[in-house]
C-alpha cells in the first residue's frame, strides 16, 4: 500500500469526521483522488465502519462489561475458528480474541446489568459444545479504551494565545 493510502487511513482512524477537502489538502492530493481511494477502502472492507466513541457513563446509561476467559477444546482441522465464529455471532459479544496462556479465548461481553451478562455466560456461552470452562471478570472501571483515556484530562488552556 502506498504511503498516502496509509496516511488517509490514519487520519480517518483518528477523526472519521474529517472532510474529503481537509484530507486532500493535508496530503497534497486532489479531492477526486481522495474520494476514489476512500470508496475503494470501503468496498474492499478496509474501512469497515465509521463509529463514535461515547462515554456512556456521562450519559447516565449504565452498561456492564465483563472479560471472560474461555477454555476450548479445539476441533480437528478447524482449530478454534468454528467455535469462535459461533461466539462472535452473539450481539452481546463486543470483542473476541484467541490468546496464548492459561486459557484460549478472551471474550468481551456487554449487557444492561450484571444479571444480563451472567445469564448470557450461563445460558449461551458456557453450554456451547467444546467450551470447557469460563471465568468471568466484571469490569469495575474503565480507564482507557481504544487509545482514549477516560480520566486525567490534560489542560491545554494555559497555552498563551500569542508567543514568539
Amino acid at each position: 500500500m502506498e504511503n498516502k493510502d496509509v496516511e488517509i487511513l490514519r487520519m480517518l482512524e483518528e477523526d472519521a469526521k474529517l472532510s474529503i477537502s481537509e484530507i486532500a489538502k493535508a496530503l497534497e492530493l486532489e479531492e477526486e483522488e481522495v474520494k476514489r481511494k476512500i470508496r475503494e477502502f470501503e468496498e474492499k472492507g478496509i474501512i469497515l465502519k465509521y463509529k463514535a466513541v461515547i462515554d456512556w457513563e456521562k450519559v447516565g446509561l449504565e452498561r456492564v462489561c465483563a472479560l471472560i476467559d474461555v477454555k476450548v477444546a479445539p476441533e480437528r482441522d478447524k482449530g478454534y475458528d468454528s467455535v469462535a465464529n459461533r461466539i462472535a455471532g452473539f450481539p452481546e459479544v463486543k470483542a473476541l480474541y484467541l490468546v496464548s496462556g492459561a486459557y484460549d479465548l478472551s471474550v468481551l461481553v456487554e449487557g444492561r446489568d450484571m444479571k444480563e451478562v451472567a445469564s448470557f455466560v450461563a445460558e449461551k456461552l458456557a453450554p456451547l459444545e467444546r467450551v470447557q470452562s469460563t471465568t468471568t471478570h466484571f469490569i469495575l472501571k474503565r480507564y482507557k479504551e481504544n487509545g482514549i483515556k477516560f480520566f486525567g484530562e490534560e489542560d491545554k488552556r494555559r497555552r498563551l494565545a500569542i508567543s514568539p
Binding site: 497555552r159 498563551l160 494565545a161 500569542i162 508567543s163 514568539p164
Partner: peptide, 21 residues
Amino acid sequence: IRKFFDLVIGMENVISLGVGE
C-alpha cells in the same frame, strides 16, 4: 508580539494562530 498579546487577553472564543509553541 507583546503589544498584540495585550489585545488578545480577555477575549473569548479566539482561535489563535499566533502561538510559538
